[in-house]
Simulated assay, not measured.
Amino acid sequence: MKIAFSPCPNDTFVFHAWAHGLIPGAPRLDITYADIDVTNGLAASGKGPEVLKISYAALPWVLSDYALIPCGGALGRGCGPLVLTAGQETAQPPDPARLSGRRVAVPSERSTAYLLFRLWAAQAVPGGVGEIVVLPFDKIMPAVRDGEVDAGLVIHEARFTYPSYGLSLMTDLGSWWEQDTGLPIPLGAIIARRSLDLEAIAEWTRQSVQYAWAHPDSSREYVMKHAQELSPEVADAHIKLYVNQYTESLGDDGYAAVTALLNRAAEEGLVPEIQPVLLR
């Protein structure tokens, strides 16, 4: 079975057992490791693999072909994207109005991070931001540091490493979302072609998550091989943050969070309107 997911620690941790033939009855995986912007594009093209990890923000464009698998993805609390600026913030709290008309780097225009940023900016940045520049997520902090853009929207392990680039936090979009809605943040989704046995895929994925938790050291070599020069401590923090109860099962709160995000984004004209029946 062909699958595409990122080389980030949470994804390799989740899929280690399945990727290494440790899940009884699960088919062998042919894996493509790719950034979320790439997997979003693969899903939208109609020519992507059978199973993918994509951003929840990309779901409205692919739900006719792909179904949402209710496990394996990334939702949570305290794990949202950050808006960063260069240097030391002098205003406390930082003033979002400084981003009015400015250049902002983002990892994808079909990412949950970008949807959250646009929803936040509509409330907080008078007149809105200026040019949006799409960059691979690992290029965003250097671009902010070097003055190529005025601010950057970062995800993944950047939560733990941005101070080393001399950057400051403008806002934590996860905290903003949670305070505004009371719901967890829907970040990355596992999807599978509707023609497949979706219940079986969900069960294999859930078993892979459970194996990872039961044997945390088993996946370490695999995780670090793909961890893009992260330290083991940062990789462990990444996994602890993004692999949680919602990874094992979305549950009612998870589905409510996804629905709230996509409905708000549709109201703002950022995504097509979704049919609720296609989510479950």
Rank of each mutant, 00 (worst) to 15 (best):
A151M: 05
P70I: 08
P81V: 00
I155A: 07
R103G: 02
L119E: 00
G72W: 03
A124W: 01
H156C: 11
F117Y: 08
A158H: 14
A124N: 12
V134R: 11
A113P: 01
V83P: 07
L116V: 13
D146Q: 05
R118E: 15
G128K: 07
S111A: 14
V125T: 04
I69Q: 08
D146H: 08
V129Q: 13
G87L: 11
E131G: 12
P126L: 00
D146G: 00
G76W: 03
L59I: 07
S100M: 02
C79W: 03
A158S: 15
D138K: 13
R103D: 09
A151L: 03
L135S: 09
L59Q: 02
P136V: 12
R98G: 03
E148P: 01
Y56A: 12
Y114P: 01
V133I: 15
E89G: 11
V144P: 01
P142Y: 05
L116Q: 04
L153I: 01
L75F: 14
A91G: 00
R118H: 12
G101R: 05
A97Y: 08
P70A: 14
P94H: 11
L119K: 02
L135H: 00
Y114M: 06
E89S: 15
A91P: 06
C79S: 12
Q92C: 08
D146N: 14
T90N: 05
A58R: 08
V149P: 08
V144A: 00
L115V: 01
V149A: 10
D146S: 14
R159M: 09
L75S: 13
C79P: 00
V83T: 10
R98P: 00
C79N: 14
P93W: 11
D150C: 06
D138Q: 11
L116A: 05
V62A: 06
D146A: 08
L119Q: 11
S100D: 03
L99I: 06
S64C: 05
P126V: 09
L68F: 09
P60Q: 06
R77K: 15
E148M: 08
L75T: 12
A86S: 14
A158K: 01
A58C: 10
E109I: 02
A122V: 04
T90A: 04
G101W: 03
R159I: 02
Q88R: 13
T90W: 09
A151R: 01
L84I: 08
A67E: 07
Q92L: 15
P142A: 09
